[in-house]
Computed example of a mutant assay.
Amino acid sequence: MADTAHLSHEDRSRLTRSAAYASTTVAALLLTMKIYAAWRTGSAAMLGSLADTALDIVASLSTLVGVWVASQPADHNHRFGHGKAEALAALVQVLLISISAVGIAARAIQQWLGGVRPQEAETGIVVSVIALAATFALLAWQRHVIHRTRSVAIRTDHVHYQSDVLLNLGVIAALALDRWTGFSGADPLFALGIAGWLAWNAFQASREAVDNLMDKEWPIEKRERLLEVIRDTPGLEGVHDLRTRTSGDRDFAQFHVWVDGNMTVRKAHDVMDRIEAQLQAEFPGTEFLIHPDPEGLRDEGAFASMDLLKTGPDPELSLPTEAKP
């Protein structure tokens, strides 16, 4: 988190765009080579790899658009920024990965039933080895960008290209087995395995994007840490109505604090300033919204107004409202 906090908005935008440009360039290079290899070999596994790479280009372009939109500063109509554009781009990629998986599986079954075998296996193997080298280089750069930026879109793109490693290894194994062992079912069998792997990755990659779009709460450990940081703040009598969410690379938290009802507005403001300073040191880059209440005042209709530091039957709801020292 510290690396992310020290990045300026411009540096983060530059890094995420560089990863998206690299992804698009690699996908275009591999597409050209795989068109040739699929034409020469007639391999279902290679055709599946080609289809996946074609979708990689569309996915990478969607990532590029997503990170560009997310990098735009908050404006009059988007006061919380544009971070969710990354999650939307990630969902586009999930959809494309799913389409790719279905297409590869259908082609593999058709080829298996028709008894079609690949030709010129050596060509397909050479192309797949080159594709592996280019993919490993891209993955290394994406890991660096993800570590620095926590970009949801780049992380999903990274998952996609991780599956490409297995995909290319599968193509090499299928062609090698067919060419040198005579196992005629290797090509469609590996293609089906690749399709299943892509489908699983699509499901996994969708979860974080959906959580981001649905404003899922922070993990319970992170929320408990927030309360621990401010527990002993002088003048703080309690905390309630804690709500948290994540949008792109930015975290948001809002909550009410109880203070002495006889405290002046200035003193109450000083208490909140101390709380915010403590939280910014622990959660840099997070936007906090803190509202003061006279001690004991509670919105009985608020869902999140359960006692925050008391244990409840549901561990997800055992989080807080009372934080007295």
Score class of each variant (00 low, 15 high):
2 A>P: 00
4 T>G: 04
6 H>Y: 03
8 S>V: 06
10 E>R: 08
18 S>Y: 04
26 V>R: 00
26 V>E: 01
30 L>I: 13
31 L>P: 07
32 T>N: 03
40 R>E: 15
41 T>D: 12
42 G>S: 12
42 G>V: 04
46 M>A: 15
47 L>V: 09
48 G>A: 11
48 G>D: 10
49 S>E: 14
50 L>F: 14
52 D>C: 13
53 T>F: 00
53 T>Q: 02
55 L>V: 11
62 S>I: 10
70 A>R: 02
71 S>F: 05
76 H>M: 06
76 H>I: 10
78 H>Q: 09
86 E>C: 07
86 E>K: 05
90 A>W: 10
96 L>M: 15
96 L>R: 08
99 I>H: 06
102 V>A: 15
104 I>D: 01
106 A>M: 12
109 I>E: 08
110 Q>R: 14
111 Q>G: 15
112 W>Q: 07
113 L>G: 06
114 G>F: 02
117 R>D: 08
119 Q>D: 15
119 Q>M: 15
124 G>M: 14
129 V>G: 02
129 V>H: 01
131 A>E: 05
133 A>L: 14
136 F>I: 12
137 A>P: 11
138 L>M: 13
139 L>Q: 11
140 A>D: 02
147 H>K: 10
147 H>S: 09
155 R>D: 03
156 T>V: 15
158 H>D: 10
158 H>K: 13
161 Y>C: 09
162 Q>N: 09
163 S>I: 08
163 S>V: 06
165 V>S: 13
166 L>W: 07
169 L>E: 10
170 G>A: 11
171 V>S: 07
173 A>K: 07
176 A>H: 08
181 T>Y: 12
183 F>S: 05
184 S>V: 13
191 A>C: 10
193 G>Q: 05
199 A>L: 14
201 N>T: 11
202 A>K: 08
203 F>P: 02
212 N>H: 13
218 W>F: 13
221 E>G: 02
222 K>M: 05
226 L>M: 10
228 E>Y: 03
228 E>M: 05
229 V>A: 04
234 P>K: 01
236 L>A: 05
238 G>E: 11
241 D>W: 08
243 R>S: 10
243 R>F: 10
246 T>K: 15
246 T>A: 09
249 D>T: 07
250 R>I: 05
250 R>F: 06
250 R>P: 01
252 F>Q: 08
253 A>K: 00
256 H>K: 05
258 W>S: 04
259 V>W: 04
259 V>S: 06
263 M>Y: 06
270 D>S: 00
271 V>D: 00
271 V>I: 12
274 R>C: 03
275 I>N: 04
276 E>N: 03
277 A>N: 00
280 Q>S: 03
281 A>G: 07
282 E>Y: 00
287 E>L: 12
287 E>V: 08
291 H>E: 11
292 P>Q: 05
293 D>P: 02
293 D>Y: 14
293 D>W: 14
294 P>A: 03
296 G>Q: 06
297 L>V: 13
298 R>P: 02
299 D>P: 10
303 F>M: 07
307 D>A: 12
309 L>H: 12
311 T>Y: 02
314 D>E: 06
314 D>C: 04
316 E>N: 05
317 L>R: 09
317 L>F: 01
318 S>Y: 01
321 T>V: 12
321 T>D: 10
322 E>T: 11
323 A>S: 11
323 A>Y: 02
325 P>M: 01
325 P>F: 01
